[in-house]
Each structure stands twice: as structure tokens, then as C-alpha cells.
Amino acid sequence: MAHDGQDARPEEDIFLAVLDDELPPQERERFEQDLAGDPALKERFERYRQTVALIRQLGPSPAPKSLLPSVQRRITRRAVQRSFPTLRFPYEMLVFVIILGSLLYFYFNMLPAPPGPVSVREAPVTLQIELTAPPTPDVVARFHLADPGDSAPGTVTCYGRLERSQVEKLLAEIAPLLARRPPLPLPPGNRFGILLTAPRP
């Protein structure tokens, strides 16, 4: 769209300026003259104008109704997660619990227990010794023997957990009452479960 003796302005600029209503009146008048004298330009511009009008008629597309609730839901979830950042699985706590549990298990099961009434099942080696009469209360007290409370009818049962040296002493003290000799020498091990059974007097 060059004019003799005037600055040529590209068609692109003019089309944009016309549709943006930014073409100065003088140039607008000149452009209208160009359109009147150039049917091809007129057709190009008409189609261009029509296309822009169509797009603008299309207009913005409204957001679906579900968009806002979805955003609100996700923001709420995010806020909760930020308030409670430790909602994830507490691995550190789990490790701590495992270590503490291991220490406690070691303490109660691996260290030598003090002599005293314990379950026969806890002793590593159990010596079952039959007596002709129940042991004296003095022996029972000194060797921390106890009655499990489930003696068979007509029987007195005492049990305890003793170190090897204590077992030897006990055997020496109750030797007159032995109905049957215990296995000698004693089985290997330092700790014994002792189970004394005797007919009830």
C-alpha cells in the first residue's frame, strides 16, 4: 500500500490499526480510498475483519462449575498437610522403638538373672529331682524355691532357678531325701531349673 511521495505502511500495520481503531483520520481516509480502488485489497480486508469479528464473538469460555470446588478441596488438603507435616510414616520413631525393644529384650533375656523363683520353662536346663519327703522350709527359703501352685494331687512340688554352685549345695543338703540320684556329673551349663517333687506328707 505504497503511495507516491508518502511513507509506505505495511498492510499488516494498517489492518491491525483499523481494527484497533487506532488509525489517524487522515490515514483512515486514505485507506478507504485504497479499498474503493482495489477490489482484491477490499476482499482481503473484509475476510480479515470478518475472521476477527468471529473470534471475538466466540469470546471467553466460562469455567466449569467443578473448577472452584476442586481448587478449594486441594487447597484445604494442602493446608492440612502443612499443619501436620509429620503425617508421613514415622520411620525415625520406628527405628528408635526397634532399638529400645532390642535393648530391653537383651536385658531381660540375655543377662544372667538373679537367683529366685522363675518359671521352669525359663531355665536353660531343667533337673527334675524326686524326693522321698518334701524339702524343709529352711531349704526352700534359702534356695528361693517356690510352689508353682499346680502340683499334682498328693504331691508337693518346688521349683527354682539356680547357679551351678548353688545346685551342688542344694543336692548336698537334700541328699538324705533323694528318691533317685540326679544325673551326675551335672549337664553342661551354669544355670539350672530345679524341680523337686515329693509325696505330700
Binding site: S61, P62, A63, P64, L67, L68, Q72
Partner: peptide
């Protein structure tokens, strides 16, 4: 306040 802003701009962003 943020929800109000979403309501205000959701059409433009979606479109």
C-alpha cells in the same frame, strides 16, 4: 480471599 480471587479470574484462566 483467595477463593474470591479464583472466582474472579477462573473464567479467563480456563478459557
Amino acid at each position: 480471599a483467595f477463593t474470591r480471587l479464583v472466582i474472579e479470574h477462573q473464567n479467563r484462566v480456563f478459557s
